[in-house]
Design a protein around this nucleic acid. Structure first.
Lengths: 157, 157
DNA sequence: TATTGTTATACTCTATAACTATA
DNA sequence: TATAGTTATAGAGTATAACAATA
């Protein structure tokens, strides 16, 4: 790392800009979309798939606020998930206006497949010495727990 | 980090999946698009802006292959850059079919502004102990140099 | 005949507004 | 009257195909 970077930027900024560079590199570009295509979904619907597994059974509208999109988008995403047999709509027992979205067994499997593909590290990471890889894994996993709200490492959920 | 993650996955996978989780989190979601909007571009055009600065004067088609998109997309992206005064087309001295794209001073400034915004780290990173932040920065900067082709930390270019 | 960049066109994804049903 | 979800519609972004200029 050039000396002027360390001098003019704080470590958190340097770290994050490196993360961004790795993530937006041509090598990584399109990975998310390709993974989604691999399970027959578009990126938005795949994100819903991820969120549902983490959150469990969820009203449509709650899913929307979780994903920062409006109700009509949720309808379309859940339509896509249902079409692939990855989720189903269940009537809420307490409010007949509300529909709950629930992942199917098949949806859980698709999610695992996608996650497995997304977590394949780029050469920049695998080329690091083992010791550095371990430090990265340890520190980044810790960072997830410090997020607000705390996140689980994707592998575990 | 739960023990089973360490047991069933190698450190590089864990590290990368954590990076992905941070980058795709709702907190970070839309950052790229918002930054692009801040300099009056859409995400694709902003990516071209980044690439141009790194690569210097470039034929349209070379820019396209760098960005993994076809020629007509390049035309549209460079149109957007020209409209904002961020780049200009220059006739190639050796081949009259070819147009070179060159960033303007204004384009370089816009890029710095965008980069500055993109490198603001999320709370998950800033909440780490200083010592961890420094380790992250050091290791990730090293990882960039190990990429193929090697990358510069965004701050430096 | 092949290649560069452009234009015209269509498709996908996302966002907005009007609608139905329940509360 | 307010809220949940849907449908209809329009917009942005991206990709495909036909085109003119040059090699």
């Amino acid at each position: 790392m050039p000396a002027d970077v360390a001098a003019t930027s704080n470590p958190a900024r340097v770290a994050w800009s490196c993360v961004a560079a790795l993530f937006m590199s041509p090598q990584n570009h399109g990975r998310f979309a390709q993974t989604a295509a691999g399970i027959g979904l578009n990126p938005g619907a795949m994100k819903a798939l991820m969120t549902l597994h983490t959150m469990g059974e969820l009203p449509m509208r709650a899913l929307g606020s979780e994903l920062h999109c409006d109700a009509s988008m949720v309808t379309q995403m859940v339509d896509a998930l249902e079409a692939k047999g990855y989720a189903e709509r269940v009537a809420s027992p307490t409010d007949r206006r509300v529909k709950l979205v629930r992942l199917t067994k098949r949806g859980v499997n698709a999610r695992h497949q996608a996650l497995d593909q997304l977590s394949v590290p780029p050469a920049a990471i695998t080329s690091l010495p083992e010791r550095d890889q371990e430090a990265l894994a340890r520190i980044l996993a810790k960072a997830l727990t410090l997020a607000d709200p705390p996140m689980d490492p994707p592998h575990t959920v």
